[in-house]
Design a protein around this nucleic acid. Sequence first.
DNA 1: ACCTGAACACCGTTCAAGT
DNA 2: ACCTGAACACCGTTCAAGT
Lengths: 190, 190
Amino acid sequence: MTTDKRLIEAAAKLLDAGGEEAVTLRAVGHAAGVSHNAPYKHFANRSALLAAVAAVSFADLAQAMATIRRSRRTPTKKLMATLNLFMDYSREHPARYRLLFNNPETAAAGGELKIKALETFEHFRSIVQECQETNNLPSAPIGTLASLIFATVHGLLAIEGNGQLHPEKGLSSVEASMEILLGLLAPSKA
Amino acid sequence: MTTDKRLIEAAAKLLDAGGEEAVTLRAVGHAAGVSHNAPYKHFANRSALLAAVAAVSFADLAQAMATIRRSRRTPTKKLMATLNLFMDYSREHPARYRLLFNNPETAAAGGELKIKALETFEHFRSIVQECQETNNLPSAPIGTLASLIFATVHGLLAIEGNGQLHPEKGLSSVEASMEILLGLLAPSKA
DNA sequence: ACCTGAACACCGTTCAAGT
DNA sequence: ACCTGAACACCGTTCAAGT
């Protein structure tokens, strides 16, 4: 495997294991078997390395979503599967999830990263559209509806990760909240 | 003003102006007119100082929400005003907003910070409840409904802050998305 | 009780070399 | 072309004093 791939992989592993602060160039270099400043021969700086991690992570998500999209399932089931994908990702890789969806630097980035991110949203949007076409979601503008549903899972996951979702206090789980949302959004079958 | 208040204020100002990375203890100390390690006489460490900033910020938000809650407005208008409060806060103090609602350390914290955070949610929940009672929101469990609506603004604002809300690409603004959500949630006046 | 200056370990980044 | 080791500036944190 080429050095740059190994650096990205090492950075991702450190990120998952210890959060963003654990991703030091020294640790990344060491984990990849090179010196602490070899990364600079492959990436402009630490941010660029993290951006590369984000890009491959978006690509992974996009691929998983493409598989769901192609599968033989009802649109509603596809949407559920996609939402579950996000939930699992957020819970198994919280720091990575934050890097993808909650990081000012990721926001500012363009190039490869931006393209991969847009691909991910495009899959999501398409699945939401299928649900609309089968009359399982209201006929609001597709972009608005898709961003609304995505933002809701995202927001719920953020709050959950922040420990501000308190099932014991009457607040509900991400799953339950999403079910309620989709239930309320579903057009009454008149 | 006491030194600890001045330290919190200086930290908040630096946070708003330059993001979390700009909040170095050296800069905070300097801005407050003390040495770079005087903060340690008032706070256990940098995290504790940021937690104090979060606590006063939550208190400010809670107070603004209490005012809205007490005002002579329809429940729906109160809810709108509260949502606008979050939107303004996120746009005017993005780094601070992230500290409050998107920070693993804030999550782990207890004490004063946790209490202030819960107070904020309590106001929000109460306003949502008013909307339910006047039949402007469906009769889902209050905790679930409140967290759902809050998570949605929060998620939309996170995406907006991340530059992933693209009005030009058919995705919509936070305001428009929230209006659609509340419109769809509103029980049909039968 | 509250503050300061020196010191330490760690980090991102740069630079001059090495193959 | 790719990598390394030394060096620099900066940071959080600790410690021994100072009033």
